[in-house]
Every structure is written in C-alpha cells, then in structure tokens.
Computed example of a mutant assay.
Amino acid sequence: MHVRRLGELEAEIMDRLWAWQRPATVREVVDDINRGRRVAYTTVMTVADILHRKGWLRREKAGRAWLYEPVRSREEYTAGLMRDALGDSQDRPAALLRFVEVISDEDMDALDAALRAARGDQEPHPGGSAA
C-alpha cells in the first residue's frame, strides 16, 4: 500500500486525534487548532470527511455530530512513509547505509532493538546496547 504524505491540515487533525487517543468531534478539533491559528469549522469538517473517505478516519454518529478516530496509528503512518521512500530508491542497501549514517545514537539503538525483536533475537549485536 502506497502512503501519501498528509497535507498540512490533514496532519494537524491526525496529530490531535493520535495524541488524544479517543474519538473526537470536528468542534473539538477546530477549538484546539484555533488556539494557535484561525481555521473555519467547515474547512476542518471537509478535511475530516476527506480523511474518512481516504480510509484514515472512521466515524460514528453521536447525536447530530460525527465522532472521528484514526484507523491507523501514527507509527503505521510513519512506517508506511519510510517503506515508500525506501521503495523509491534504485539502490536500497546504499539508501539504508546513508540513513543509518545520519541517525542519532538513540535512534540507532532503537533500530537495533526493532531488528532484534523482528528476528526474535534477544541478544544485542556488536555495537548495539541491550534494550
């Protein structure tokens, strides 16, 4: 599945719903966004509907309003973007090497731990720390 990067307002909506970890109405999202900048209720309602049609949000009726919640986690979204970026490379090993050359030690340790977990291996590899 190809994952398209979210637009600015789409990302603002999804960020709030991921952080809140509960269904929310468009009014709640609008009120929160409006703490930092002005956005129209109808604009957020339209974008939430688009995210629903794209399969990013599920919704259920609560009185006269829709309650929206994410279908996928932020981590699934990020992993999809990373997979797509790697898939665009002509030389995957070189792209992976360049990636690990620029990540922080903390990210390197997290990557090592993720690789060990995916393999079912509990022992750290040379140079990595135990998780």
Rank of each mutant, 00 (worst) to 15 (best):
R5Q: 15
D84Y: 01
L97R: 15
V102T: 13
E69C: 00
V39G: 02
L17Q: 04
R98L: 14
E76H: 02
Y68S: 01
D32E: 11
H125D: 14
A94R: 15
A110I: 07
P124A: 06
A85H: 09
A65G: 03
E10S: 13
L6H: 14
V29F: 00
A48R: 04
M108F: 10
L9N: 08
Y77P: 01
L97E: 04
V47E: 01
R72D: 00
A19C: 02
R72E: 01
G7R: 15
V26W: 03
V102W: 08
M14N: 01
S73Y: 08
V47D: 00
G127N: 09
L57A: 04
V26R: 07
A24F: 02
Q21M: 04
P23Q: 07
K54G: 02
A62L: 09
A117T: 11
D49N: 12
I33L: 07
M82H: 06
G55S: 06
V26K: 03
L81N: 02
P23N: 06
H52A: 12
L57E: 04
E69W: 10
G120Y: 08
D31K: 12
V30H: 09
Y77L: 09
A95P: 05
E69F: 06
M14E: 03
A94S: 12
L67W: 08
P23I: 04
E106D: 14
L96E: 01
W18D: 03
N34D: 05
Y77I: 04
M45K: 10
H125N: 09
R98C: 07
R59N: 05
I13F: 00
